[in-house]
């Protein structure tokens, strides 16, 4: 999987790249419009993460060019601009997702994964993690082949974990993924805790291993026990 990160803030580009590389993607960066334009003309990518405000150009133009060149490439816009018009315009000209800065890398990663799943197999693909199987288009979960009933939030939570395995996730990023921005941390952290507790219990009941670890002061990690 090849991902191109177009972001002029080098620190941020590096952060994204590191995260993506860890997830097993081949990652390239471009910090100017010029370089990005060159790269999309020369190579093919599965996904491109593009910042709207570049020192020498506008991200929208890149999206338009890309749509002309390779329409199968997934496009995620990351922008500091939270304006509705920008979001609408982005989606209108063919981007697949729009993420407002500051965002969580884990959230970006989850969106890239979901996008690639949708793009490449038309969503008809299963996510497997050891004895767990998730069928996204049907929103069903199997443990050792047995169907496991999860609530909507528990399902979302599991999918988020599966998109970010073996990565420490902050409570805030989980809360934001589940409820968006309009919620108080104090309440949402409690709710995250109770959802995780329930999810864990349901998975354990069906005979799965305990994959959720809590990390002191930070949040949770889903991975090998």
């Amino acid at each position: 999987m090849k991902v191109l990160v177009v972001e002029d803030e080098l620190g941020l580009a590096e952060g994204i790249t590191d995260y993506m590389v860890k997830e097993g993607y081949v990652c390239e960066t471009a910090d100017t419009f010029q370089k990005a334009d060159e790269k999309i003309h020369l190579y093919e990518y599965d996904c491109i993460i593009v910042d709207l405000t570049l020192p020498d150009g506008n991200g929208f133009q890149l999206v338009e060019t890309l749509k002309r060149l390779a329409s199968t490439t997934g496009i995620i816009i990351i922008s500091a601009r939270n304006a509705l018009e920008d979001k609408l315009k982005g989606l209108e000209i063919g981007s697949d997702d729009y993420l407002t800065k500051p965002f969580h890398l884990s959230e970006l990663n989850a969106r890239v994964k979901s996008l690639l799943r949708r793009r490449q197999f038309g969503g008809h693909t299963e996510i497997r993690f050891r004895e767990l199987t998730v069928v996204p288009h049907a929103r069903t979960v199997f443990v050792n082949g047995q169907p496991t009933a999860l609530s909507r939030k528990e399902y979302d939570l599991l999918l988020y974990f599966l998109s970010n395995t073996d990565v420490a996730l902050t409570k805030a990023s989980i809360a934001e993924h589940l409820w968006g921005d309009n919620i108080d941390s104090a309440d949402s952290f409690d709710m995250v805790y109770s959802h995780i507790k329930n999810l864990r219990r349901k998975l354990l009941d069906k005979g799965a291993a305990d994959y959720v670890q809590s990390i002191y002061g930070i949040g949770y990690k889903f991975g090998q026990p």
Binding site: G11, G15, Y19, I78, A80, H104, L105, S106, A168, T170
Partner: peptide, 23 residues
Amino acid sequence: ENASHEMQTPLALINAKVEQLIQ
């Protein structure tokens, strides 16, 4: 718009670095 951009980007950077750090 610019203020938004200029502030949000460093904040995004801090967030990203913190997320890397906690790994």
